Every structure is written in structure tokens, then in C-alpha cells.
Simulated scan of single mutants.
Amino acid sequence: MIHSDLGADVEYDARSNTYRFQRGEHCETNTSTAVVTAVAEAVDREPTELEPLEEQIDSDALDMFFDPDASENGRDRACRVTFPFAGCEVTVNQGRSIVVSAPE
């Protein structure tokens, strides 16, 4: 396990070519920014080199459902969303994890 610039622990699974970013309890980075950072790390590019996240998903909605204070706003934290982004498949889960299936 390694620690990323995102403030998350990262596990890489070579069999499935996936990266699992587990954001720490005190990570205050919003979910949409965390997704961009995680994908950039997985594909070894700068976040500014990636397409805008908004071309694939509503980043405000992503933040609303998955940011740390979402449960305080009455949102159901038991949800998951999967979408394509920058040639990867991204899954954001409850519990502050982001899974990135990197391209081959």
C-alpha cells in the first residue's frame, strides 16, 4: 500500500489493473477533485491534462452525494456510482473510496 498526493492510501491490483484510493477520515478534498486526482495518478498524468470531469458526470451531484458532510445533509451514504473518465472506469463508493480501472 502506498500513500498518494490525494491524502489517500492506494492499493494496486495488477490482475485487474485497478487502483483503490481510500480517502482518510480527515481528508477534506471534495469528491470531484479527488476523482480527478485519483485518475491522474492512475494514468500518470497531471490533473490539468485530463478532460474536464463535467464532460462525463455532474460534479456538483457527485460532491453532494459523496462528500464528508453528505450524511449530515440527510443524504443516503449507501450508494455507488460508476462512470467513464479519461479512458478509465471510475467507481465512487460510500466509505470514501474511489476505484479506478486504468486502461491497458
Rank of each mutant, 00 (worst) to 15 (best):
N30I: 08
A61F: 13
A86P: 01
F83H: 05
E55A: 15
V39K: 07
V100M: 01
V92I: 08
H26R: 09
M64D: 14
R96M: 09
R15A: 15
V92L: 04
E104N: 11
I2H: 03
D60M: 04
V35L: 12
F65Y: 14
P103M: 06
I98C: 07
V100Y: 02
M64I: 03
E46G: 03
T18D: 06
F21M: 01
T82C: 03
E11L: 11
L62K: 03
V36R: 15
F66N: 08
E11H: 06
D60R: 04
Q94F: 14
R15M: 12
Y19A: 02
E55R: 15
E51R: 11
A40C: 01
T18L: 06
A40D: 01
Y19E: 00
F66Y: 12
T31R: 07
A14S: 10
I57P: 09
T48L: 10
T82A: 07
N30Q: 06
V92H: 02
E55H: 14
G87C: 04
C79L: 05
C79P: 00
P103C: 07
E41G: 03
N73S: 11
A40Y: 01
E49D: 12
D9R: 06
F65V: 13
A61Y: 13
E55C: 11
E46Q: 05
A34Y: 10
T37M: 14
L6I: 09
G7A: 09
E41Y: 05
E72R: 10
A61S: 13
N93G: 12
D13C: 08
R20A: 05
D67V: 10
S32I: 06
A102S: 14
D63T: 06
G95E: 12
S4L: 00
S4D: 07
V36A: 11
D5P: 06
E51M: 08
A61T: 14
S97T: 09
L62Y: 09
N30P: 13
S97H: 02
D44N: 04
N73M: 14
C27Q: 08
F65A: 12
C88E: 00
